[in-house]
Write a protein that binds this DNA or RNA. Structure first.
Length: 265
DNA sequence: AGTACCACCTGACGGC
DNA sequence: TGCCGTCAGGTGGTAC
């Protein structure tokens, strides 16, 4: 769910359902998701306003509250999503709710409660405060090259570092490296120009393709790793068994045949 | 700077 | 059936 493509899908969902409707009130069922801000602050900023402009940076979704200069930012953690409903259906795990005067409601649902809904002054200062890097779909080639050449670490943790590049997580890092035929443990600053170009282009095309396919792995191309991203399953390209390699408490899944580690030997 | 681990949370799954 | 460990797409903090 909540890496860049998923968040982009949520953004479009919110745009197609929840804009330009007067907010009657907000309901906070779990204050922990407000990250230190108060339910009263959210209520005060949202009541009588409507959701208007949206903006995504990496895995964060910003929505403006008009008429005012305030925004609210959504982060989806591991299990967050949005649901626009009428009545009281689909309420499981609804943690923060925007109720509109037309009787509809926008639910922020999150079973694991690792997400966040935070009133903020503006996206720019939030992005700066979180030290987020450039958005993965917006970053230009020269900045991408510089990011790689500055890093003495492995590709896998670098792509997951939101201060280096924002929006890519565990799942899509693996897909991008697989499509690029690059091992997750290769040192970023050791890539050749041709490999950097391949990586950049695959990053963009994987993210765009995922968005086009509604971030739904069942609709991904046959050549994609994500639908078979488990040990005991095999590489869609060569049939070799997929392997798992731990990085800082997370798992990289990759094909040992298609993604050789050039650092070694 | 890079890496390793824990914490925050809940749910699904496999083995016994 | 229950219990237990492990794993899961997130970030943040600490320690080396």
């Amino acid at each position: 769910m909540p890496e860049l493509p998923d968040v982009e899908i949520y953004k479009r969902y919110l745009e197609s359902t929840s804009l330009h409707q007067e907010i009657q009130r907000t309901v906070v069922r779990d204050e922990r998701l407000l990250k230190g801000t108060s339910p009263e602050t959210l209520q005060k900023r949202a009541k009588g306003k409507s959701l208007n402009a949206t903006r995504r940076h990496g895995k964060y979704l910003f929505v403006s509250l008009d008429p005012s200069s305030a925004w609210v930012v959504f982060h989806f953690g591991m299990t967050g999503d949005l649901k626009y409903t009428q009545g009281h259906s689909d309420e499981d795990y609804a943690r923060v709710i925007f109720e509109f005067t037309n009787g509809h409601r926008l639910l922020f649902r999150d079973s694991r409660r690792l997400g966040a809904v935070i009133p903020v002054d503006d996206p720019e200062s939030f992005i700066a405060q979180k030290k987020l890097g450039p958005d993965a779909l917006a970053i230009e080639k020269a900045d991408f090259d510089q990011m790689l050449s500055k890093s003495r670490g492995a590709l896998k943790p670098l792509f997951m570092d939101q201060s280096a590049i924002a929006g890519i997580g565990n799942l899509y890092t693996d897909e991008i490296l697989f499509q690029s035929h690059l091992h997750p443990g290769i040192r970023a600053d050791k890539l050749e120009a041709e490999e950097r170009t391949r990586l950049y282009e695959n990053m963009k095309s994987v993210l765009r393709t995922a968005i086009e396919k509604n971030a739904d792995p069942k609709q991904f191309p046959e050549s994609y790793l994500i639908p078979r991203r488990r040990t005991k399953l095999s590489c869609p390209r060569c049939g070799t068994k997929i392997e798992r390699l731990p990085f800082e408490g997370r798992s990289a899944y990759f094909c040992p045949q298609c993604q050789k580690n050039q650092n070694e030997e």
